[in-house]
């Protein structure tokens, strides 16, 4: 068997690099193009320290708790502590100096302070509605209204 054929066969049978590994290796994790795709891939995207199951910072935790309150479960969360390029890259991308960062429908909405205020003034419910996500708080409120009427 020729050497080139052996190489070809090896290439065909070798397994692809696992995804997380490939992401860490790629130089592109901080490129504008890559980040653009990342924030647009999901309706709700959060860049945070730690994971939703284990936030590593109080502000990131607050964002996770707010989303949980609204029943938003299917959001993409990226842990910037695992990728220094991503950590700096996302700050440059949004021209925002801090983590966490929240994106709705591909658009940067703010960090923890802003999300908290949007939660308090009702804006978050409306913004989620625009994405076709019904806030769990609405159902809760309605339930309480009904009780009040009776």
């Amino acid at each position: 068997m020729s050497a080139s054929l052996r190489l070809l066969r090896r290439a065909l049978t070798s397994r692809p690099v696992p995804r997380p590994c490939r992401r860490l290796l790629s130089q592109g994790s901080a490129s504008r193009q890559h980040l653009d795709a990342l924030v647009k891939k999901d309706k709700v995207v959060v860049f945070m320290k730690g994971t939703p199951a284990q936030p590593m910072c109080g502000f990131s935790n607050a964002v996770v708790q707010i989303l949980r309150m609204h029943g938003v479960e299917n959001y993409a969360a990226y842990n910037v502590l695992e990728d220094q390029d991503l950590r700096q890259g996302i700050k440059n991308y949004s021209d925002w100096p801090t983590i966490p960062q929240v994106y709705l429908n591909g658009e940067f909405v703010g960090g923890c302070d802003i999300l908290l205020q949007m939660h308090q003034n009702g804006d978050l419910v409306n913004e989620l509605k625009k994405l076709g996500v019904r806030s769990a708080l609405l159902d809760k409120d309605q339930g309480e209204d009904k009780k009040d009427k009776k």
Partner: peptide, 25 residues
Amino acid sequence: LLQRHRLVNSCLAEELKEIHAFEQK
């Protein structure tokens, strides 16, 4: 709100490089 915070951030652009956490109202 976002524009307000951006205004504050740009005012403190240099300082924020050294600041670890920054809450604003």
